Amino acid sequence: MRENRGVPVSDAQTSLDAAIAARLKRTPDGLVAAIVQEHGTGEVLMLAWMDAEALHRTLTTGRATYWSRSRQEYWVKGATSGHHQRVRKVALDCDGDALLVTVEQTGAACHTGTHTCFSHELPLEAGQ
């Protein structure tokens, strides 16, 4: 069960299609990883978290909506930053434990101001 500024949101209270909700395999706190990919380039932009309500809002509004684990509330990407994500497609992986959200990104995807959250490559030592 999630809370939205003190208002509990459970699967029974969300309007997410029951068949979709049943396929979601969530973390103990009810979340599913949402991998966000840019529509035009295929570049991975970020990782965020969704519960059934965030997924429902994303699917019905076309605006990427996530659950903030630090603030314990829903957030629409770009609502305060202006760096919006227009959702083009959402896919559930074969195990039901991750979502692939394909978006048209306006501005930076990362809260640090970079286009992608994955800009720090680590050195590979094996197999070089």
Rank of each mutant, 00 (worst) to 15 (best):
A19K: 07
C110V: 04
E3N: 00
W75G: 00
E104S: 07
L47W: 11
G6K: 14
A91I: 06
Q128N: 04
D97P: 10
D11L: 03
R69I: 02
I20G: 01
T61M: 03
M46Q: 02
A33T: 00
E121I: 04
H83Q: 06
T27S: 15
R63V: 05
G6M: 13
S10D: 08
F118C: 07
Q85W: 07
V36A: 12
E121N: 07
G96T: 06
G127N: 13
R2K: 15
D97S: 12
G127L: 14
P28W: 15
P28G: 15
E125M: 07
D95M: 13
T61H: 06
A34P: 07
V103L: 11
E73T: 00
Q105I: 10
A79V: 01
A109S: 13
R23K: 15
T106V: 11
Q37C: 09
S70V: 02
S15K: 08
D11T: 00
V103E: 04
D29S: 06
T114P: 00
A18W: 00
T114G: 03
H39T: 04
C94H: 10
V36F: 12
M1C: 12
Q105M: 08
E104I: 02
Q128C: 03
T27I: 10
L47A: 09
H115K: 04
C94A: 11
A109P: 05
L24D: 07
A98V: 07
R57L: 12
S119N: 12
A22P: 07
I35Q: 09
M1V: 14
M1E: 14
S70D: 09
Q37W: 14
S81C: 01
W49P: 01
R71P: 00
G82T: 04
D29K: 03
A64C: 07
L16E: 12
R5E: 14
M50L: 12
R63I: 11
D29C: 01
C94L: 03
T61V: 04
R71C: 02
T106D: 13
G96N: 07
P123D: 12
A48P: 07
D51E: 09
